[in-house]
């Protein structure tokens, strides 16, 4: 029996173990779940060590050290010590007395991410989307584009009205808000439909694995 065949059998048995929860909680499911969690944790530890720690930190420090030995100075690789320092601070959470120092690392992460994301998110998901809604309501010779643009403008406007709570939703204002609710509900419906399709796709993949690859029934 080749390694591949053994792998397929293990995969199939563990899949059935996880599926068995659909009937009721049982030791077979518990075992499969624990194995999955354990292997995932081990896998990610190894990935983090070899793909993040070693190439991004250790190798660069080694380079800095060799630069120091050969040139008598370090060009810029010393900067990785700053990252290492913040990493050590993060680990200090394990020491309750000085655990507060880990907040420095968190502050650095949050600050850098916010700074990096702010302009990019504002442009791509803010300004460009606003510009996208400013479309001509009538496109001559193209009925589809005309209807599409009207839907975008009305949907955006009424959707925003619904979230404006400083004025009571009455009269024309309330009517626009109700239209906004309809647009929101249709959007949520589409999102739900896509989510169902996604989950069904995963189930199809598993069933194909069981019947097609494991049992070779077709």
């Amino acid at each position: 029996m080749s390694g591949e065949v053994i792998g397929v059998w293990i995969g199939a048995i563990l899949t059935l173990g996880i599926f068995s929860f659909l009937y009721k909680d049982n030791p077979f499911y518990k075992f499969s779940e624990a194995l999955f969690v354990g292997i995932s944790a081990g896998y990610w530890f190894v990935v983090t060590f070899w793909q993040y720690f070693v190439p991004k930190f250790w190798d660069n420090l080694a380079l800095a050290y060799s630069e120091l030995l050969t040139k008598g100075r370090v060009d810029y690789h010393w900067i990785y010590l700053v990252g290492g320092f913040f990493g050590v601070l993060m680990l200090l959470r394990l020491v309750p007395k000085i655990g507060w120092l880990s907040r420095w690392s968190l502050a650095f992460i949050v600050g850098t991410t916010a700074g990096l994301q702010f302009t990019r998110y504002l442009e791509s998901n803010g300004i460009k989307q606003v510009v996208g809604t400013i479309s001509p309501l009538l496109v001559s010779g193209n009925m589809n584009a005309t209807i599409g643009n009207i839907i975008i403008v009305v949907g955006t406007f009424c959707g925003l009205i619904y979230f404006f709570f400083s004025k009571e939703h009455k009269g024309a204002f309330g009517g626009a808000a109700r239209v906004g609710v309809w647009f929101l509900m249709i959007t949520f419906g589409a999102l739900f439909g896509y989510t169902v399709m996604s989950r069904m796709s995963l189930l199809i993949g598993r069933m194909d694995y069981l019947f097609g690859i494991w049992l070779s029934l077709y």
């Binding site: 460009k128 989307q129 996208g132 959007t187 589409a190």
Partner: peptide, 17 residues
């Protein structure tokens, strides 16, 4: 994209992104 993600990507088409 996965189907869960796809609806969030359609606005990028309309803007030409």
């Amino acid at each position: 994209n996965t189907a869960v993600q796809a609806p969030s990507m359609y606005p990028y088409i309309q803007t030409g992104q």
